[in-house]
Protein backbone atom coordinates (compact mmCIF):
# COMPACT_ATOMS: atom_id res chain seq x y z
CA UNK A 1 0.00 0.00 0.00
CA UNK A 2 1.20 3.54 -0.71
CA UNK A 3 -0.14 7.02 -0.10
CA UNK A 4 -1.38 7.40 -3.67
CA UNK A 5 -3.39 4.18 -3.61
CA UNK A 6 -4.77 4.94 -0.12
CA UNK A 7 -5.77 8.45 -1.21
CA UNK A 8 -7.33 6.93 -4.32
CA UNK A 9 -9.35 4.37 -2.36
CA UNK A 10 -10.51 7.03 0.10
CA UNK A 11 -11.48 9.33 -2.76
CA UNK A 12 -13.42 6.46 -4.29
CA UNK A 13 -15.15 5.76 -0.96
CA UNK A 14 -15.92 9.49 -0.58
CA UNK A 15 -17.52 9.53 -4.04
CA UNK A 16 -19.78 6.61 -3.18
CA UNK A 17 -20.76 8.20 0.15
CA UNK A 18 -21.45 11.57 -1.54
CA UNK A 19 -23.76 9.87 -4.01
CA UNK A 20 -25.65 8.02 -1.27
CA UNK A 21 -25.96 11.29 0.71
CA UNK A 22 -27.21 13.17 -2.34
CA UNK A 23 -29.92 10.63 -3.10
CA UNK A 24 -30.90 10.11 0.53
CA UNK A 25 -30.93 13.81 1.57
CA UNK A 26 -32.68 15.14 -1.52
CA UNK A 27 -34.80 11.96 -1.72
CA UNK A 28 -34.16 12.23 -5.43
CA UNK A 29 -31.84 10.73 -8.02
CA UNK A 30 -32.37 13.57 -10.49
CA UNK A 31 -29.20 14.23 -12.46
CA UNK A 32 -27.76 10.80 -11.69
CA UNK A 33 -27.38 8.20 -14.41
CA UNK A 34 -28.83 4.85 -13.35
CA UNK A 35 -27.08 3.33 -16.37
CA UNK A 36 -23.67 4.29 -14.98
CA UNK A 37 -24.64 2.92 -11.59
CA UNK A 38 -25.59 -0.39 -13.20
CA UNK A 39 -22.20 -0.49 -14.92
CA UNK A 40 -20.41 0.25 -11.63
CA UNK A 41 -22.29 -2.59 -9.92
CA UNK A 42 -21.23 -4.93 -12.75
CA UNK A 43 -17.64 -3.67 -12.41
CA UNK A 44 -17.46 -4.39 -8.66
CA UNK A 45 -19.22 -7.75 -8.80
CA UNK A 46 -17.16 -9.04 -11.74
CA UNK A 47 -13.92 -7.73 -10.22
CA UNK A 48 -14.42 -8.84 -6.63
CA UNK A 49 -15.44 -12.45 -7.19
CA UNK A 50 -11.96 -13.25 -5.81
CA UNK A 51 -13.43 -12.37 -2.41
CA UNK A 52 -14.25 -16.07 -2.12
CA UNK A 53 -10.95 -17.38 -3.45
CA UNK A 54 -8.10 -15.20 -2.19
CA UNK A 55 -7.64 -13.19 1.03
CA UNK A 56 -5.37 -10.16 0.52
CA UNK A 57 -6.02 -8.18 3.74
CA UNK A 58 -8.85 -7.12 6.04
CA UNK A 59 -8.75 -3.70 4.41
CA UNK A 60 -9.03 -5.23 0.92
CA UNK A 61 -11.93 -7.50 1.89
CA UNK A 62 -13.84 -4.80 3.80
CA UNK A 63 -13.50 -2.23 1.01
CA UNK A 64 -14.63 -4.73 -1.64
CA UNK A 65 -17.72 -5.56 0.42
CA UNK A 66 -18.43 -1.84 0.99
CA UNK A 67 -18.19 -1.11 -2.74
CA UNK A 68 -20.47 -4.01 -3.69
CA UNK A 69 -23.07 -3.30 -0.99
CA UNK A 70 -23.12 0.47 -1.64
CA UNK A 71 -23.48 0.05 -5.40
CA UNK A 72 -26.41 -2.35 -4.92
CA UNK A 73 -27.93 0.05 -2.36
CA UNK A 74 -27.61 2.90 -4.87
CA UNK A 75 -29.37 0.83 -7.52
CA UNK A 76 -32.13 0.00 -5.04
CA UNK A 77 -32.61 3.68 -4.19
CA UNK A 78 -32.62 4.69 -7.86
CA UNK A 79 -34.80 1.98 -9.33
CA UNK A 80 -37.06 1.15 -6.41
CA UNK A 81 -37.24 3.63 -3.55
CA UNK A 82 -36.92 6.90 -5.46
CA UNK A 83 -37.93 5.46 -8.82
CA UNK A 84 -40.32 8.37 -9.47
CA UNK A 85 -37.40 10.83 -9.50
CA UNK A 86 -35.30 8.81 -11.94
CA UNK A 87 -34.78 10.76 -15.16
CA UNK A 88 -35.07 7.84 -17.57
CA UNK A 89 -35.80 10.16 -20.53
CA UNK A 90 -32.36 11.76 -20.40
CA UNK A 91 -30.59 8.65 -19.08
CA UNK A 92 -30.79 6.96 -22.46
CA UNK A 93 -27.23 5.74 -23.08
CA UNK A 94 -27.22 2.23 -24.63
CA UNK A 95 -24.97 0.43 -22.12
CA UNK A 96 -24.96 -2.74 -24.19
CA UNK A 97 -22.66 -0.78 -26.53
CA UNK A 98 -20.20 -0.67 -23.61
CA UNK A 99 -20.78 -4.09 -22.05
CA UNK A 100 -20.34 -6.18 -25.19
CA UNK A 101 -17.16 -4.52 -26.58
CA UNK A 102 -15.53 -4.59 -23.13
CA UNK A 103 -16.27 -8.27 -22.76
CA UNK A 104 -15.03 -9.07 -26.27
CA UNK A 105 -11.86 -7.04 -25.65
CA UNK A 106 -11.32 -8.95 -22.38
CA UNK A 107 -11.54 -12.20 -24.34
CA UNK A 108 -8.89 -10.90 -26.73
CA UNK A 109 -6.49 -9.01 -24.44
CA UNK A 110 -5.92 -10.38 -20.95
CA UNK A 111 -3.12 -11.58 -18.66
CA UNK A 112 -4.48 -15.14 -18.39
CA UNK A 113 -7.37 -17.00 -19.98
CA UNK A 114 -9.16 -18.11 -16.83
CA UNK A 115 -12.74 -17.18 -15.85
CA UNK A 116 -11.69 -15.00 -12.90
CA UNK A 117 -8.98 -13.24 -14.92
CA UNK A 118 -11.27 -12.63 -17.91
CA UNK A 119 -13.93 -11.18 -15.59
CA UNK A 120 -11.33 -9.06 -13.80
CA UNK A 121 -10.07 -7.74 -17.16
CA UNK A 122 -13.66 -7.12 -18.33
CA UNK A 123 -14.29 -5.12 -15.13
CA UNK A 124 -11.14 -3.06 -15.72
CA UNK A 125 -12.18 -2.18 -19.29
CA UNK A 126 -15.78 -1.54 -18.26
CA UNK A 127 -14.81 0.75 -15.40
CA UNK A 128 -12.86 2.91 -17.86
CA UNK A 129 -16.08 3.77 -19.75
CA UNK A 130 -18.69 3.28 -17.00
CA UNK A 131 -18.95 7.04 -16.39
CA UNK A 132 -19.96 7.77 -20.01
CA UNK A 133 -23.73 7.50 -19.40
CA UNK A 134 -23.35 9.93 -16.47
CA UNK A 135 -21.32 12.44 -18.48
CA UNK A 136 -23.80 11.99 -21.34
CA UNK A 137 -26.69 12.76 -18.94
CA UNK A 138 -24.96 15.89 -17.60
CA UNK A 139 -24.30 17.07 -21.16
CA UNK A 140 -27.97 16.49 -22.07
CA UNK A 141 -29.37 18.28 -19.02
CA UNK A 142 -26.64 20.93 -19.39
CA UNK A 143 -26.00 21.18 -15.67
CA UNK A 144 -25.40 19.23 -12.46
CA UNK A 145 -26.18 19.84 -8.78
CA UNK A 146 -23.08 20.87 -6.85
CA UNK A 147 -23.06 17.67 -4.76
CA UNK A 148 -23.25 15.65 -7.99
CA UNK A 149 -20.22 17.53 -9.32
CA UNK A 150 -18.35 16.84 -6.05
CA UNK A 151 -19.27 13.16 -6.49
CA UNK A 152 -17.86 13.18 -10.04
CA UNK A 153 -14.71 15.01 -8.95
CA UNK A 154 -14.01 12.46 -6.21
CA UNK A 155 -14.79 9.58 -8.56
CA UNK A 156 -12.52 10.94 -11.31
CA UNK A 157 -9.74 11.72 -8.83
CA UNK A 158 -9.65 8.15 -7.53
CA UNK A 159 -8.35 6.65 -10.78
CA UNK A 160 -6.04 9.63 -11.38
CA UNK A 161 -4.48 8.86 -7.98
CA UNK A 162 -4.24 5.21 -9.00
CA UNK A 163 -2.13 6.33 -11.99
CA UNK A 164 0.31 7.89 -9.51
CA UNK A 165 0.14 4.66 -7.48
CA UNK A 166 1.16 2.65 -10.59
CA UNK A 167 4.05 5.00 -11.31
CA UNK A 168 5.18 4.66 -7.69
CA UNK A 169 4.84 0.84 -7.75
CA UNK A 170 6.80 0.63 -11.00
CA UNK A 171 9.77 2.50 -9.53
CA UNK A 172 9.50 1.23 -5.96
CA UNK A 173 8.50 -2.41 -6.58
CA UNK A 174 9.14 -3.02 -10.28
CA UNK A 175 5.46 -3.96 -10.46
CA UNK A 176 3.15 -2.87 -13.26
CA UNK A 177 0.02 -4.05 -15.06
CA UNK A 178 -0.36 -2.55 -18.53
CA UNK A 179 -4.06 -3.48 -18.78
CA UNK A 180 -4.91 -1.55 -15.61
CA UNK A 181 -2.63 1.35 -16.59
CA UNK A 182 -4.03 1.82 -20.10
CA UNK A 183 -7.65 1.50 -18.93
CA UNK A 184 -6.97 3.81 -15.99
CA UNK A 185 -5.44 6.41 -18.31
CA UNK A 186 -8.48 6.34 -20.59
CA UNK A 187 -10.80 6.47 -17.58
CA UNK A 188 -9.03 9.57 -16.24
CA UNK A 189 -8.88 11.27 -19.65
CA UNK A 190 -12.68 10.95 -19.94
CA UNK A 191 -12.98 13.18 -16.86
CA UNK A 192 -10.66 15.92 -18.13
CA UNK A 193 -13.43 18.04 -19.60
CA UNK A 194 -15.40 17.70 -16.38
CA UNK A 195 -12.30 18.43 -14.24
CA UNK A 196 -11.81 21.67 -16.20
CA UNK A 197 -15.41 22.75 -15.64
CA UNK A 198 -15.28 21.71 -11.98
CA UNK A 199 -12.12 23.70 -11.25
CA UNK A 200 -13.06 26.78 -13.26
CA UNK A 201 -16.70 26.92 -12.15
CA UNK A 202 -17.79 24.81 -9.21
CA UNK A 203 -14.79 25.76 -7.06
CA UNK A 204 -15.69 29.40 -7.70
CA UNK A 205 -19.14 28.79 -6.27
CA UNK A 206 -20.82 28.72 -9.64
CA UNK A 207 -23.15 25.96 -10.74
CA UNK A 208 -21.76 23.38 -13.16
CA UNK A 209 -23.24 24.61 -16.43
CA UNK A 210 -22.17 23.00 -19.66
CA UNK A 211 -22.02 25.33 -22.64
CA UNK A 212 -25.37 24.71 -24.34
Amino acid sequence: MNIFRLAGDLSHLLAIILLLIKIWKTRSCAGISGKSQILFAVVYISRYLDLVTTFVSVYNTVMKLVFIVSSVATLYMMYVKFKATYDHNHDSFRIEFLLVPCFVLALLIHAAFTPLEILWTFSIYLEAVAILPQLFLVSKTGEAESITSHYLFALGSYRALYLLNWIYRYYAEGHYDLIAIFAGAIQTILYCDFFYLYITKVLKGKKLQLPA
Binding site: D50, T54, F67, A111, E117, Y176, D177, L178, A180
Partner: peptide
Protein backbone atom coordinates in the same frame (compact mmCIF):
# COMPACT_ATOMS: atom_id res chain seq x y z
CA UNK B 1 6.65 -8.81 -15.19
CA UNK B 2 3.09 -7.95 -16.07
CA UNK B 3 0.94 -8.80 -13.07
CA UNK B 4 -0.87 -12.07 -13.61
CA UNK B 5 -3.72 -13.21 -11.39
CA UNK B 6 -2.54 -11.75 -8.09
CA UNK B 7 -4.60 -8.59 -7.99
CA UNK B 8 -3.94 -6.89 -4.68
CA UNK B 9 -5.58 -3.60 -5.64
CA UNK B 10 -9.26 -2.61 -5.43
Amino acid sequence: SVEGNNHDEL
